[in-house]
């Protein structure tokens, strides 16, 4: 018995070595960015890898105002928030319809949505851009919000359809007998019951929208979003690594905060639909 236990402990210790290295390779760049964000330029020149000797917030202040990150930040917040709210509303409605209502070509429609999941964004960029130009949506926040919604909708609809398919039909029937119209059934019953899945979707979509470069580079050519701005920092201030890393920290902070706040939700959300409650 104890022999088996010892052997198991030894195996765990041996496995811990590559695991530790893997963790280190993930954590070090984060440490590098945060550490250098607090260094002065001279401090960085003297020792790139050492700890900041005279920690300063100057880089953050500079990045925020001089490099226009404040403006980009606002653009990102507007686009992300707008798209995520729109995505939640539309995917919840579509999921309800596809999972619970009977209408002609329902399966066909679902198959079309599913198949659009398999087409990479790059393939449709030209027709997408032409549509945006034709609709005068380039360089507008609305344009970016609609673009994000369009590109991230198929997965969201798929997930909400799967989630709602697991709910008993009788809930909808009971609400219909209780006199609720279709939109009321959605608002009073399906939307609140879909919250676990919707919160997960909101987090995943926030990540996708916030971190996007490709779509916003195309749609917001005059006003940059934060991620486009950060990418540009790399070229503009290539000799000012502390300024650049402070930009990265500013960009990553909201996502990290979101993750810390919703950590439990994210982990449980991944299992949404896997096990029927």
């Amino acid at each position: 018995m104890s022999g088996a236990g010892k052997r198991q402990r030894l195996a765990l210790r041996i496995a811990a070595v590559p695991m530790g290295l893997l963790a280190l390779s993930c954590l070090y760049p984060i440490f590098f960015a945060i550490n250098n964000a607090f260094k002065t330029r001279d401090d960085y020149m003297r020792d790139r890898f050492g700890l900041a000797t005279q920690p300063t917030f100057d880089n953050f202040v500079q990045a925020w105002s001089r490099a226009h990150l404040n403006e980009y930040f606002l653009n990102s917040v507007i686009a992300t928030l707008g798209a995520v709210i729109l995505l939640m509303v539309v995917s919840s409605m579509a999921g309800f319809a596809l999972a619970s209502l009977r209408f002609p070509y329902r399966r066909f429609l679902f198959a079309v949505i599913l198949s659009s999941l398999m087409i990479p964004v790059q393939v449709v960029l030209v027709p997408f851009m032409r549509t945006m130009l034709a609709l005068n949506l380039v360089n507008t926040h609305i344009g970016l919000i609609l673009s994000y919604t369009a590109f991230f909708l198929p997965f969201s609809v798929y997930m909400m359809t799967a989630f709602y398919s697991g709910l008993p039909r009788e809930l909808i029937e009971a609400a219909r007998i209780d006199g609720a119209k279709l939109l009321q059934v959605w608002w009073h019953v399906m939307l609140p019951l879909g919250m676990p899945a919707l919160v997960t979707l909101a987090i995943l979509n926030t990540l996708s929208c916030w971190n996007d470069i490709l779509i916003s580079l195309l749609v917001m050519q005059k006003h940059r979003t934060l991620m486009v701005g950060i990418s540009a920092l790399k070229g503009q201030y290539s000799d000012q690594i502390p300024l650049f890393t402070s930009g990265i920290v500013i960009a990553a902070a909201p996502i990290v905060v979101l993750y810390i706040l919703f950590q439990r939700r994210i982990v449980s959300g991944i299992a949404v639909g896997a096990v029927k409650g």
Partner: peptide, 20 residues
């Protein structure tokens, strides 16, 4: 007629209570 306009109430096997 729509279910709500028939003047009927129904009790389901699964109860179908709104869990929230």
């Amino acid at each position: 007629e729509e279910p709500a306009d028939r003047g009927v109430s129904m009790v389901f096997q699964s109860y179908a209570l709104y869990p929230h």
